[in-house]
Nucleic acid binder design. Structure first.
Lengths: 239, 239
DNA sequence: AGGGACACGTGAACC
DNA sequence: TGGTTCACGTGTCCC
């Protein structure tokens, strides 16, 4: 199966010329060592010319194939940062990681763009943790619009004393998504003593209470049946 | 340079036993065909055992290296869709495309998240073109907040009669970014006769007029100097 | 010296 | 049958 004979005679001749009998061959099944003999100029018959040509085109094709593969590898090397001195396997491993990571972040991002139409959604997550202890968080709540929603949210956000760095309102049909980005910094550049997880869970709980208020008032939960089209700009209901 | 002798004698012995003199060797420099001779059991000296061991460990190491590389290739094959029957080069080419595309979309997305702090920014672009002629567009305007900004924008959006599917307000410090996603559909499911590019350029022009209005009233352009902190929720200035 | 990494030419298999 | 792909063992360089 794994038995074959191959070789380019040029090197062999060089070795032979130097009197260096390095050209040994291993029979891996029997563990025997064998010295490849010098060239035998024996005629092989009328097919010799064709065999030469076939062998030559074969090795050339194989060289082209290797060049093709290595060219793609080089391209990948330039695409992945700091992979200049990696060997082939390490480069491919790095590419695997990059692809996984990029795919994950891409799906994560598109998911953060998404406004679920049939289920309410609360997301509270850490989006960056810095070495100095400062963290950046994102909290979002997506639900059906109702008249008191924004004032309720404002009240909740204010009561939590979050260090807001960005807030966002999106609308899609009659649904609204509010997103807040905040840090654990407090005035003066100090880091909030509260542990991140505690902060996040209190935000989660506060958002839940906003959603619960909707459920508690059925007149709001039937709101979508009206299929009212709202938008920050084609309706003044939000403002 | 490219001259070498290699081979596993097992195969050679099989061929020899079958009387098939296929084991030919090509000297690619001279174009000569040579038949590899049968095994020569000549003693090579006291180093024969070591040479056997070296050759064996070498080929085994090489096999492990190949396995490592191919394992990563298999992983990549599972990571990129519909690459089951691609050969190595095509797979790598596809991976190159995927990585480029993912990196581009990732940077594109993070750029769309970005709120420029020192320059006003208008972006109008197509985000999807469907086979049925319907298109999905995104238009965004990012600038310093000023009291009339939202009503100006609302007026502009209304006058364009866009089929809005999503609108978004983000704030970062005293800067505001408004984003609108709209389609070329009109009531009844028909596609707007207007060509997409005309639609987009009129949106771009309308947004520019909103920005121009800021420049025309210097009291607004000095607004940032106050470093006023606004947010949808820690200030009522937006609503 | 000895092990890793790479390019090479070959045999086998497939179409 | 030519053409192409892959795995293999080897030669060679480098540390």
């Amino acid at each position: 199966m794994n038995c074959q004979i191959s070789g380019n005679l040029g090197e062999f001749c060089e070795n032979e010329a130097k009197g260096v009998p390095q050209s040994l061959v291993l029979d891996s099944e029997k563990g025997e060592l064998v010295k490849a003999s010098g060239r035998v100029e024996k005629k092989v018959g009328k097919s010799e010319g064709k065999t030469i040509a076939a062998l030559k085109s074969h090795s050339e094709a194989e060289r082209r194939r290797r060049q093709r593969i290595n060219a793609h590898l080089t391209t990948l090397r330039n695409l992945v940062p700091s992979s200049n001195k990696m060997d082939k396997a390490a480069l491919l491993a790095e590419v695997v990681c990059q692809v996984k990571q990029l795919k994950e972040s891409a799906s994560h991002v598109s998911e953060s763009f998404f406004i679920p139409l049939d289920s309410d959604d609360i997301r509270v997550e850490t989006i960056a943790e810095n070495a100095d202890g400062t963290c950046c968080y994102r909290a979002s709540i997506c639900c059906e619009y109702r008249p008191d929603l924004l004032s309720d949210l404002r009240q909740v956000i204010n009561s939590l004393h979050l260090n807001l760095v960005k807030s966002e309102i999106s609308t899609l049909g009659s649904r609204v998504k509010n997103e807040f980005v905040f840090t654990n910094m407090i005035e003066g550049g100090h880091v909030n003593i509260e542990h991140g997880e505690i902060l996040l869970s209190s935000v989660r709980q506060a958002f839940s209470s906003v959603l619960d208020k909707v459920s508690a008032f059925p007149e709001y939960s039937t709101y979508p049946n009206k299929r009212q089209r709202i938008s920050c700009f084609d309706s003044s209901s939000l403002f």
